[in-house]
Design a protein around this nucleic acid. Structure first.
Length: 744
DNA sequence: GTCGTCCCGGGTTCC
DNA sequence: CCGGGACGAC
């Protein structure tokens, strides 16, 4: 095994003690190096539980654990392998009480946080143009850097609201015995300064290894530094070109300046790519080389050129999905490829739907990895909230969520009264509801008291179930049954109701898995921690299935065949404006994302985009991704250039223009309309709401070769027959096809 | 006071 | 397309 490593990899694996930085490009075998290094440490006598390996996704952690158990057997079980968040949760389980957390603390997810901020804003009467999202992202950004959000002044009107709401936000978390994702790490950092826990943590791990180090934020880096401060045995591996998490506070400086913080660090570069064909590597290098802010390294391969990159333009997102499904079907029918060789990557989770539909149609097995989180579905959140409330009576957020779910006659007014009482007494909502049921809360009618009593009794009864020793799965079944959730969805007697029940039964299955794995150690708290920190797709891999995932999820993985869908400007690169990040900087991150996507492919890469895409139920016209222009023409099986949509600019010869445009369209619209089950190009003559960046939205000035300039009144339809009603200065109102217009 | 219906608007990525 | 909020009906 060792013999198959090249000299650089070998040096990294066998590096002795002291800090080590491995700068490794895509596909240079860095995960392999990490795995072998850990195995090597164990061979040298380091005990498995003295090794901490941090990854960025649960998926990567799972993979690493699996590979290590192949090399080491049971020893791997006892290692600390996990994400920053999971690692910190584990440390806090042991030491949490020293930073003010009680046993069984809750972890707030995005949605929980948002709801809380929303409520606090309303209570404080904050109504100006600040959304809860904006405030929350300010909280996050500050916390990622290890500073108090309330003290950050960026000099805009949002500052005051942050300063006002944040202390209340944090106070409520404390009351509920809850933490948000950032707090998991911040609390451990506080622990590092603790007289007792600090020194222990500094020496607990004889070796600390961090994968994807370019994605660590300041707080995470400080944590790593402390955890390795007793031994200085810190190995970090990363690639600044693959930094794709700046939006959540990642600081690539951490990797670039590593040798400044660790002057005696050994630095090893891995530049030979073993993964991709020359063609794919050329394409990836061409894209990333357009970035100014990079260190620059020279990846090379001795693999041959390989197949050219396939490129396809579809009429709409359904056609795109159909093209992909058909290509995969052919590939598999020809033999040589199996579904598990193929990955479909996209920028946003929302893109998975049409793809799934077409794959199903062809009977192709697929697995959506880490998708639109299962745990974000309403029925799942509700059931989990019951569990939270049973496990932790202080969980106001959970109480709020389920007290009237399913509807049992406890409305806003009643809850407001309870809340008023809690702010006076400091009791939790559930506790207050108990008081109310006994008539000890003012202002509540007998009817409301009775209903609250019923709810309190429901929760108490479920608590008894747990006390009686029920497994998590059994508890969950009781929750769904006794709360009336099941009856409610059954009564709906609809597709939706059945879907939701199906999801709930899947949740019960996950709980049963947990019960099996955890055995005696299992607890409601343990299950809740797992639901907060993992997605179910992280857990079980389906055997022979096509993998579908976002590019972010795909980092660190590789596949023989990759389909990269939705290569459209605005989608990929995403051109959304963001709070606090410059446009150029944001674009560079998108470019790195493109680099990551392309380098996932070993042998064959397919790129595609759709001229019309349904977004939130509305059709919108798309333009090809600017990244396509960066690809060397020699890498592509089909040229990118002529595929650009017909230019609606005709400065001369107006009579010729329509014919030319027509021909261009037909020529390059690659759908064929022969087969029955093929999705047809979707056209709609309805008046549609134009997208904000639409050059033809009402009010815009446009020009027409024959009619001159005018103002848009209305836009209809989409695609090649999209028509625009224009009030022309010279000829009055006319309806013309969009492609004969240009922005004035 | 609570529940149902309609309308509006939406931050994409992950732990 | 989906959830939250506003508004009107028991």
């Amino acid at each position: 095994m060792r013999g198959t490593l090249n000299p650089e990899q070998h040096a990294a694996v066998e590096h002795g003690d002291g800090p080590l930085l491995v700068l490794a490009g895509a596909g240079t075998g860095k995960t392999r190096v990490l795995v072998h290094r850990i195995a090597h440490l164990v061979e040298r006598g380091v005990a498995p539980w003295q090794i901490l390996a941090v990854t960025f996704t649960n998926k990567a952690a799972g993979e690493m654990r699996e590979r290590l158990s192949q090399l080491l057997g049971d020893g791997a079980e006892r290692m600390w392998i996990g994400t920053f968040h999971a690692t910190c949760a584990r440390i806090l389980r042991r030491w949490g009480e020293r930073v003010g957390l009680r046993k069984g603390f809750l972890i707030f997810d995005d949605d929980d946080q948002l709801k809380l901020v929303n409520r606090l804003m309303k209570e404080a009467g904050v109504d100006e143009q600040v959304t809860p999202r904006t405030l929350l992202s300010r909280f996050d950004r500050a916390k990622n850097q290890g500073v108090d959000p309330a003290s950050v002044k960026r000099g805009d009107f949002v500052d005051d609201f942050v300063a006002q709401i944040y202390p209340q936000y944090q106070a409520q978390l404390l009351r509920e015995n809850a933490v948000d994702f950032n707090d998991l790490i911040l609390h451990v950092l506080t622990l590092c300064k603790d007289d007792e826990a600090g020194p222990r943590l500094a020496t607990q791990f004889r070796h600390v290894l961090v994968d994807e180090f370019q994605d660590t934020n300041r707080v995470q880096y400080e944590l790593v530094r402390h955890l390795s401060s007793g031994t200085h045995n810190l190995t970090v591996v990363g690639d600044d070109d693959q930094s794709i998490y700046r939006w959540r506070g990642a600081e690539p400086r951490n990797i670039l300046d590593f040798d400044r913080d660790h002057p005696n660090a050994a630095v090893i570069k891995l530049e030979q790519n073993y993964r991709s064909t020359g063609t794919i590597l050329d394409a990836a290098n061409a894209v990333i080389s357009k970035n100014a802010d990079r260190h620059g390294k020279s990846l090379w391969t001795d693999r041959g050129g390989g197949d050219l990159i396939e490129y396809k333009i579809a009429g709409d997102d359904r056609s795109e999905a159909w093209d992909v499904a058909r290509a995969i079907k052919e590939m598999i029918d020809e033999g040589g490829s199996s579904p598990r060789d193929v990955a479909i990557l996209y920028r946003t989770n929302a893109q998975s739907r049409p793809l799934e539909e077409q794959l199903r149609r062809y009977g192709l097995p697929y697995q959506v990895v880490g998708a639109v989180s299962f745990f974000e579905r309403k029925e799942i959140k509700d059931a989990v909230a019951y569990l939270r409330l049973i496990a932790n009576s202080a969980a106001d957020s959970a109480f709020d969520r389920v007290v009237n779910e399913p509807p049992r006659g406890i409305g806003q007014t009643t809850i407001d009264r309870l809340r008023a009482h809690t702010s006076a007494t400091g009791f939790a909502l559930l506790e207050t509801a108990k008081l109310a049921a006994r008539g000890e809360v003012a202002g509540l009618q007998a009817a409301a008291r009775k209903k609250l009593a019923g709810f309190v009794e429901l929760v108490a009864g479920l608590g008894d179930v747990v006390q009686a020793g029920a497994s998590v799965a059994e508890t969950l079944i009781q929750v769904v049954e006794r709360s009336g959730i099941r009856a409610r969805y059954e009564a709906m007697d609809s597709e939706e109701g059945r879907d939701r029940l199906g999801n709930l039964s899947q949740l019960v299955n996950l709980a049963a898995d947990y019960d099996d794995e955890a055995g005696e150690e299992g607890s409601l708290e343990g299950f809740l921690e797992r639901t907060a920190l993992t997605a179910p797709a992280d857990e079980r891999e389906q055997g022979d299935a096509i993998r579908m995932m976002t590019i972010h999820m795909a980092k660190g993985l590789e596949f023989p065949v990759v389909f990269l869908c939705g290569m459209e400007d605005g989608l990929f690169p995403s051109l959304r404006e963001r709070d606090g990040v410059g446009e150029a900087e944001a674009l560079e991150e998108e470019r790195r994302l493109a680099y990551v996507a392309i380098t996932r492919a070993r042998d064959k890469l397919y790129l595609s985009w759709a001229r019309v895409r349904r977004v939130w139920g509305k059709d919108s016209m798309q333009a090809p991704s600017r990244f396509l222009d960066d690809l060397p023409p020699a890498c592509l099986a089909q040229p990118v250039r002529p595929a650009a949509p017909p230019r609606p600019v005709y400065t001369s010869a107006p009579a010729m223009a329509p014919r030319k445009a027509k021909r261009e369209w037909d020529e390059y619209d690659q759908r064929s309309s022969s087969s029955d089950d093929e999705p047809v190009f979707h056209l709609d003559a309805d008046v549609r709401e134009p997208a904000a960046d639409d050059p033809y939205r009402p009010g815009r000035e446009v020009s027409h070769a024959a009619f001159g300039t005018g103002k848009v009144l209305e836009a209809r339809g989409a695609g090649p027959t999209r028509s625009i009603v224009v009030e022309f200065a010279s000829v009055g109102r006319k309806t013309v096809l969009a492609r004969f217009l240009a922005p004035a």
